[in-house]
Every structure is written in structure tokens, then in C-alpha cells.
Design a protein around this nucleic acid. Structure first.
Lengths: 332, 332
DNA sequence: ATGAAAGCGCTAACAT
DNA sequence: ATGTTAGCGCTTTCAT
């Protein structure tokens, strides 16, 4: 049985497309379609299992009821969980999610952004490293409904959902020092992202507050390309320099480092302490113990959805910058 | 600057829509559009940053270049990772992914399937518990491009990407027994899914092969609704009955049980052994030790993509049932 | 109480 | 070498 369109339905029933369309969109009463006709249409539609073509609808209405969710990696639990929550919130409002993983790659991010726009998504939720890119600038200048989360570029005015990076990291590192850390190394992704920069600042601030000399040699940078190998090398450097604590600026590196510790430094796992931005369930059971900063993912998802809802419903778009407070999880 | 359509471009340039369309779709040469005109179009399009409307294109062509990825929960690492891989494979072929999380809820699954179909996705990749549902039957009867993974209904002929559930579970449980397990309990989700049933069969088979008496009381079923509370209760039951090993039929429950063990039975974590279908990174560092069955997610993603590609390119759809071999990870 | 017709942005067969 | 036109499936204004 071939798929029926509104035209087919109308023909089969000896009605016009208009009438059928009205009935299907619950405008039957408003448009004075007789009860009888409405029944006929509804019954027939049921019988032939008519499915409206959302593409045609979207083209006509200029609205697709889709949202683009663009992140570095949808399989990173942080982004996966937020994605799930955003999906749920939007599902309730009749929206569907397109996903895209950029691998923090500028070209890919640009392409994906453009494809989402071409697909006429109604809005975008993005964790981008390239907020200054031409593609994004152009979206912003057109007032495209857009909210950034997790990453910020202070030079670009836009909607941001962020967390207090600096002070949370400071608090976490101070907790470590209070429980006896003396020499603290730090391993971080290339600090080209403002959030990461701030997390490093927080680390420095904690050292300063606790009168520990800052040693630039103890800040080790790993490149996104071969994270595992790079982390292995830098962790080795730090271990050899005799640190008792390692601070990480995001969950990805911490997880790798836990694996490395259990593989290559099994005898040291109880001597060393970790501090990690982002929390992962694993930290509850693993060694070394991790003091972690848990981001409020429910709130991040909720505010993203909410801001987009506002923009979509009211056209006026005052940019918002929301900074949420993470939760410190002390495991000492 | 308002968004330009092909019509605008054509007008601005004093050409027809056709000409512009041909140039934009790289059919300029084939259609004998002069080099000069092609240059003009390309330059102008660049200048005004023209973005083709994919919705209009889709409506016209009857093809959207989208795939629906429908799973119980996109934030479950198993589904997130496969999702990521599928996204990557399809990205290379110009397809985009719609995601949907069903929570194993029939009504939600039905709705989402229908919405995907309304959105005219070109194909679906689905992990469904309700392969017998009317919605799915109707898709199947229309030869809708569809591949199931992770779950199977032997009564329904379709494309399936599966793993050897029974024999893998048997092997894993036997490994446990060989390393001295005497009394093995099992905690499982409601076995309404064929895969889960088979995993339980594998457990029974191992006991039989190793001459351990089967005790139905040691099979504990937890409901999806309040997984944490239910798992807590059933784990307690098993611990009190003196098991030395607990077998789990999927990662979700195992992860919860690890947390419970570390929270309520800290003194027992080295006495008890776990066996888990699905592997999670966490198992590398956590106690109790876990013998796990790691599913070949790369292959699952690859075959799903491949089968859909075949269907999409060649219309003929011989159903395939691919059963992959998981990897046993022995941590004793 | 219902229908005709235009049009959303695009493609492609068919002119010229 | 380029233009005219119909049509994808739907909504909606304006007629009747």
C-alpha cells in the first residue's frame, strides 16, 4: 500500500485538501467543518494509517521543530548526559535533536554548523572551541537562536550557560592541600579555551592562598590528538618530579590517568591524590582518590532549553550569561 | 541581511533559477553553462553567503539524508559509543543523525518511530524491546530501511546485528567457576528481551557443564523502574544467601552493584566476584573484580551502517542476521 | 460548510 | 547556453 498524502485522502473522500488539512490540525471546529465530515476524515486517516509529511510542513511553515546539539564528542558522558536531558526537555515541547560531534576540529565544526543551518534547525545548543569563527559570528549577527554551554569566549556576546570554573577549581585544590598535599602538578588540555584557562587560574590561586610556591614546570599540557600517549608521558614527568597530587582540568584526562596509575604505578595509587574538574561515577570506586568538581548537568540542560524556548517564543533575544555553581565532591 | 534563496540569486544575477541550481549542484559543465556564468554564480553565492535550504531539497527529492537512531537511553555509554561511531560513518556519507531515547517505554518508542518516519528519515537504526509492535510491523511490511541491533525477536524477520549472547555468557561464567566460584547468583532485568533470556541460558549452561546445582532462588529479577532500589534489595538477598559470585546481564546493573558493594559491603569487595555482560572502563579499576563480556561496538556500528548503505543504494533488501563474537575480559 | 489557488525553496524534464 | 514550468506535500487566505 503506497503512502497516502493529504491530496489522496481528499480525493478518496471527495473533499478538498483544505478541509482535510483543517480537520487533521484540529481546526475543524474553528473552521466550521461539520462533525460528520470530521468523523469521516478521522476514521479514514486512521484506517489507512496516514502519516503527515513533516518535511512539507516544515517547508511551508518555515519551522522544523528541530534543534542541533553540537559538542566535541557525544560519547563523552558529560555531553551524553546533557544531551539526554536536553532531548527529554525538548521532546516534551515537540522538538527533535540532531546531534553532531566535532572532535574539537574547526573545519568539522564549521561544516556541521552549516549543515544544521541548512537543515533549518530552529535553534542550536553548542559547546564550541571556536566561538570567534566566522560561521558563528555570522549566526550571531543574524540573531540565530543559539546558546553556548561549557565554553565561553568573553569577547563574544552571546547566550552562555557556564559554571564557576576558577573558584570551584580553587576550592577543590585547597581541599587537597588541607588534606596534606604539598607538591601539586597539573595536567591540562591546551588552554585555548577560556574555561580551561580559568580552571588553571583557580589552581594557581589555591597555591597562592595556601602559600605553596608555584612552579611552572608542574603544569603539563597535553594535546587532544593522542591524548593517551601524551598523558602517559606527562604523568611520568610529574611522578618523577615527586608530586603527591595531580590536578586535571577535565574528566577525559583524569580517567586516562586513573587507568595509567593502575597499570604502571599500582604501588603508588594510595599515595597519590587526584583533583579533577568534572565528576565521573568511576571516581566513587577508583584509586587514586579523586576530589572532583561535579557540574550541575540538570541545570545546564534546563537553562539551555529554557533560553531557547524564550527566544523561540518571543523573538526578542537579550543575551544571557548564566554561571552555575558546581558541587565539590571530597573523597579524602 | 535577509536570507537569499535560489530565486533571489537568479534575479540578482539576471539568470534563471535553473541555471543557478545547476551551477550550485556541480552540473554546470554537464549542462553546458558557460564558465563565465559559473564563475559569476559561484562568486555571488560566496559573497552573500548563500545557504541552500535542505528542507526544500528534501521535499523535492524525496530523500532527507537523515537517519534515526533510536535506543533506550543515549546516555548509556554502550549506546552513546555506538551512536558516536554510527554518526561518524554516516557523516562521511552525508547523513545526519536524529536521536531518540525510549526508556524502554512502548508508547514513547511508538511515538518516536512515527515522528522519525514523519520526518522522512531515510533509515532507522533501532535497539527496541517491542519488535512485535504494530508500528514496527508496519514499517517492516513497507520494507522501510531498518536495522535492529542489540535486541532480537526471533519471530520477526528483519535485519539484526547481534552478539552471541548465550555462548559468551556461558564462557564468562565458566571462567568464574574455574577460578573457584561455588555459589553463583544472577541479577537481571526482566527477561522480556530475547538477548537477556539467552544470557540467562548461558549462565545455566555453564552451571550445568561444571556440575553446579541450579537454584532458581539465585536468579533475581529487577524492574527497570527503580533500578537502584531494586538492585539494592536483590543484591542483599543474594549476599545473605551466601553467594561468592554475582552474574549480571547488562552493564547498568553491574555498575549499580559495584557502587552498592563499595557503599554497604566494603569488607566483602575482595571476597566477591562479579560477572558482567557488557564491559565498562570502570571495571578496570573497581572492586569486586569483574569478568566481563565486551561487545564489539565498532563492528556493531560498522555493520549497521553498511547494511543501511546497501539497502539505500540498491533497493533490494535481503534481510541479514549478523551475529558477532564478543571479547571475554578475564579479571581474576 | 467547503473549495480553489498560491506559495514555501528547490530540481529537472522539456523547451528554445 | 539558458529559460519555462510543473510539482514535491503541506498550510492558509480568500471565495463561494
Amino acid at each position: 500500500m503506497k503512502k497516502k498524502s493529504i491530496k489522496d485522502i481528499a480525493q478518496d473522500l471527495g473533499l478538498s485538501k483544505t478541509t482535510v488539512s483543517f480537520v487533521l490540525n484540529n481546526k475543524g471546529d474553528k473552521m466550521n467543518i461539520s462533525k460528520k465530515t470530521q468523523q469521516r476524515v478521522l476514521a479514514y486517516v486512521q484506517e489507512v494509517n496516514y502519516q503527515p509529511n513533516q518535511i512539507a510542513k516544515s517547508l511551508k511553515k518555515g519551522k522544523t521543530n528541530t534543534i542541533g546539539y553540537l559538542v566535541p564528542d557525544i560519547s563523552n558522558p558529560f555531553f551524553a548526559k546533557i544531551g539526554r536531558l536536553i532531548e527529554d526537555y525538548f521532546w516534551d515541547k515537540g522538538y527533535h535533536l540532531f546531534i553532531g560531534s566535532t572532535d574539537e576540529n574547526k573545519a568539522k565544526e564549521d561544516q556541521m554548523l552549516n549543515m544544521f543551518v541548512n537543515r533549518q534547525v530552529d535553534a542550536l545548543v553548542v559547546a564550541s572551541c571556536f566561538i570567534q569563527s566566522d560561521t558563528i559570528k555570522s549566526l550571531l549577527s543574524r540573531d540565530f537562536p543559539l546558546v553556548f554551554f561549557d565554553r565561553e569566549d568573553p569577547d563574544v556576546i552571546a547566550n552562555y550557560i557556564l559554571v564557576e570554573n576558577k573558584i570551584s577549581m580553587k576550592n577543590a585544590v585547597e581541599k587537597a592541600i588541607e588534606s596534606n598535599s604539598k607538591k601539586l602538578g597539573l595536567i591540562t588540555l591546551t588552554p585555548n579555551i577560556y574555561s580551561i584557562k580559568n580552571r588553571i587560574e583557580g589552581y594557581k590561586m589555591a597555591l597562592k592562598n595556601k602559600n605553596i610556591d608555584f612552579d611552572n614546570q608542574l603544569i603539563r599540557i597535553v594535546d587532544n590528538n593522542d591524548l593517551k600517549k601524551e598523558t602517559e608521558r606527562e604523568l611520568k614527568t610529574l611522578m618523577e618530579s615527586g608530586v603527591d597530587t595531580v590536578v586535571f582540568t577535565n574528566n577525559q584526562i583524569t580517567v586516562i590517568a586513573i587507568w595509567l596509575m593502575n597499570t604502571y604505578y599500582k604501588d603508588k595509587v594510595t599515595d597519590i591524590k587526584f583533583v579533577s574538574f568534572d565528576n565521573v561515577d568511576l571516581f566513587d570506586y577508583s584509586l587514586p582518590k579523586v576530589i572532583s568538581v561535579a557540574q550541575p548537568i540538570e541545570k545546564i540542560a534546563m537553562y539551555s532549553t529554557q533560553i531557547i524556548e524564550e527566544i523561540l517564543s518571543s523573538k526578542k533575544s537579550e543575551n544571557k550569561r548564566i554561571e552555575l555553581t558546581p558541587r565539590l565532591i571530597n573523597r579524602t
